[in-house]
Amino acid sequence: MNRDTMLAGGIAVVVAVSLLAATVVPGAIAQPESDPVRSGHLDIQEVSIAPTAVSGGTATLQVDTRLEHWGGESENVTVRVRAVGLESGLVETTTETAVEPISGEREVSVLQNLSVERAGGYRVETAVYRDGARIADGSTEVRGVGTLTPAYARTDVRFHWQSGDGFPPIEYTVRNAENDRATLDVSTFLTNEGDADSEELRVVVTARQADSNVVANRTEVEVGTIRPGRTATPSVELTVPDEYNYYLDAVLWKDGVIVGTARSVANLNPTETVRTNETVREVGIKVSDFEDGDTNRGARETTASSDADGSVPGFGVGVAVAALGGALLLARRQS
């Protein structure tokens, strides 16, 4: 028997034994693995927070968690987000979101909403879980949640000239002055700073006696729609007792909600003046000058009633009697 024949016979014997072992002993010959899937890697790349819906009592914060992924496929991933009060340390609210399986090298955005009280500040904590085990976490803080403007109080219309440039947001002229009464033509300036037409608005203007805060007169005017980048100049007439100084307050209303305020002054007393930021002083006033005045009526209605009965609202017979008695008493003392 030559050498080649012996080698071939040996190989045949080895193959036969291997086949017999595979039949008799399961698993004797290892089967090739079918390319097992390796778990991917996840990390928090960025967390951004933006307000969405804002009401009078609550604010909804949208939390955008961007997850960085690389490697194999990641399954059974959840993201938990909670808001913790900065001052109290109490958990305000918590939400949890399941994430679809992630594969490849990419970023994934997970959006979640947190509804919190519209006050103070919060620490927003984010945690990433896979198969119930935490694999990444982080936190960020938001402050000034109470300064967010509710949707019902938003408007792009602003009182002009309130930036400290020296111009008053409200101005007036004296249209008429007689019988110790002054009729003021009061106007203000409203600018639409937005990109669309404004809502239907109205302005309520009040003349408030500077030393006592007594409302001398109040009226309102419809503003209507203001085009983008345009300024409207609504004006009203207010009739008030003469020889007093007044704060002129303008309040901007939108659908029953105050959306803006402005203040200026009207100095009708030639011996003293007031400023908008001045502390109220105690100065003697005649309350009777402001009696019998319905502050809810408009200036035109007040003027019409004056012409009808021949008297001027706010000054009754008592004022004249008091003035006559004072004059007689002064004359008697001098004599």
Rank of each mutant, 00 (worst) to 15 (best):
H160C: 05
A177V: 03
H160A: 12
P36I: 09
L330G: 12
N179C: 09
V205H: 08
I102D: 07
R66N: 08
V205M: 15
F315I: 14
R154N: 11
G85Y: 07
I258W: 05
G9R: 00
Q209C: 09
I170T: 14
V116K: 07
V63M: 02
A177K: 04
T219H: 13
N113P: 06
N2Q: 06
V145L: 02
L248H: 05
D156W: 06
A151C: 04
L7K: 04
Y122S: 06
R175F: 07
P26A: 13
A250K: 09
E301P: 09
L252Y: 01
D211G: 13
S103F: 08
S109Q: 15
N269V: 01
R66F: 07
A59Q: 02
Y152R: 11
T239P: 14
E237W: 04
D137L: 02
V257Q: 08
E46N: 14
Y247K: 08
Q162S: 10
Y129A: 01
A177M: 05
R154D: 07
G57S: 04
A59Y: 00
H41S: 08
K286C: 14
G104R: 09
V17E: 00
E87F: 00
V47G: 00
E272P: 06
L90Q: 12
V13T: 00
L328P: 13
K286E: 15
A16M: 06
E193V: 01
P168I: 06
N269K: 02
A232Y: 15
T173I: 12
V215D: 05
F315N: 14
P36W: 10
K254W: 05
D309Y: 14
P234N: 03
L328E: 15
